[in-house]
């Protein structure tokens, strides 16, 4: 796994200017390909409450980074910062060496569950097609056939062929979510950001989406930043974990972060990480910080 190699570089403080001033020759360093995503000293606070600070992060081609944390710990906000729609308090974010504050972005993004209203004049396939050419000016005139083939393939991959002709607003939450995954993947993005894409999926479709994303990063080298509440479905794919809590964070391989001592220190109170029937469960994380884990521990 390329990502395991990348992990050691995550906290190094090598000068960001060196990485950004030119595009490093990737073929010269096959073991250490240039990071696709570089975050340096990222800090963000709302109304005096710090979400995260001093965040340094390199995500290299093909790496699968899982972001964990309580409700309100700033996971979605982090993804929005990576998209360039949320400004940082301080620090820099670069994608493919280019600052996200400007420039053309080629990022696939699956937003946290937001239902598309009924009465949206769009069918399943239209939503996916926007992932291909939604950023192009004008109306779609040429290339309909090639587009159709791409969209069909993306739909088939999420088991959504049946949903292609249905009005998007009439699809269930999970069906919409699968359409969004197809929309993000069809664009062949440089980076894939997923905000709880497993939210309202049944077990079968959870596995399907995880393996789809996993396959994509292996075949295309697309790095993945994957926000989730339950680490278990993505644990086999995860290279590194970024755990956000109480304005602080821990970054490392799953076995380095998902440990009682590490999380206890992070939360500032006793937290137990246990393995129950092959699943990792976090017990005793403060309720006001993380109601979800209480439920899971109960």
């Amino acid at each position: 796994m390329t990502g395991r190699d990348g992990a050691s570089c995550a906290v190094t403080q090598d000068a960001p200017t060196a990485a950004s001033s030119s595009h490093p020759d990737r073929s010269a360093h096959p073991a250490h390909p240039a990071p696709v995503l570089e975050v340096r000293g990222a800090t963000l606070a709302f109304h005096g409450r710090t979400l995260w600070s001093g965040l340094d992060l390199d995500v290299r081609p093909g790496e699968f980074l899982t972001v964990l944390g309580a409700n309100g710990s700033g996971k979605s906000t982090l993804l929005k910062a990576l998209l360039g729609v949320q400004r940082l308090g301080s620090g820099t974010i670069r994608i493919q060496g280019e600052s996200v504050a400007r420039g053309r972005r080629r990022v696939g993004y699956v937003p946290q569950q937001r239902l598309i209203p009924t009465g949206t004049p769009m069918r399943g396939r239209d939503l996916v097609a926007l992932g291909v050419d939604g950023h192009r000016p004008g109306v779609r005139l040429r290339g309909r056939r090639a587009l159709r083939a791409r969209v069909d393939a993306a739909l088939a991959a999420v088991d959504g062929t049946e949903l292609a002709r249905r009005p998007i607003g009439q699809l269930s939450g999970g069906e919409q979510q699968r359409m969004r995954v197809a929309q993000a993947l069809v664009s062949d993005p440089a980076l894939l950001l997923c905000d709880e894409p497993l939210g309202s999926l049944d077990l079968h479709h959870q596995q399907e989406v995880v393996s789809l994303v996993d396959q994509r990063r292996r075949s295309h080298g697309t790095p993945v930043v994957f926000v989730t509440h339950d680490v278990n479905p993505v644990l086999p794919a995860t290279d590194r974990v970024l755990y956000l809590a109480a304005g602080s964070h821990r970054l490392g391989r799953p076995e380095e972060v998902l440990r009682s001592d590490v999380l206890s220190e992070l939360y500032g109170t006793r937290v137990d990480v246990a393995e129950v029937a092959g699943r990792i469960v976090v017990l005793g994380a403060p309720a006001h910080l993380d109601p979800h884990h209480w439920e899971e521990g109960a």
Binding site: K80, L83, G84, V85, R104, R105, R106, V107, G108, Y109, P111, R114, I116, T120, M122, L127, L130, G131, D133, G134, H135, R136, P137, G138, V139, R140, R180, Q183, A184, S187, P189, L193
Partner: peptide, 25 residues
């Protein structure tokens, strides 16, 4: 409207996803 048709459609549906693909909201 015709000139910005697809980006407008994308932005109306989901501004953040559109921004991720380079649509200047």
């Amino acid at each position: 409207l015709v000139a910005i048709w697809r980006p407008l459609l994308f932005n109306s549906l989901d501004p953040d996803v559109a921004a991720a693909r380079g649509v200047p909201g």
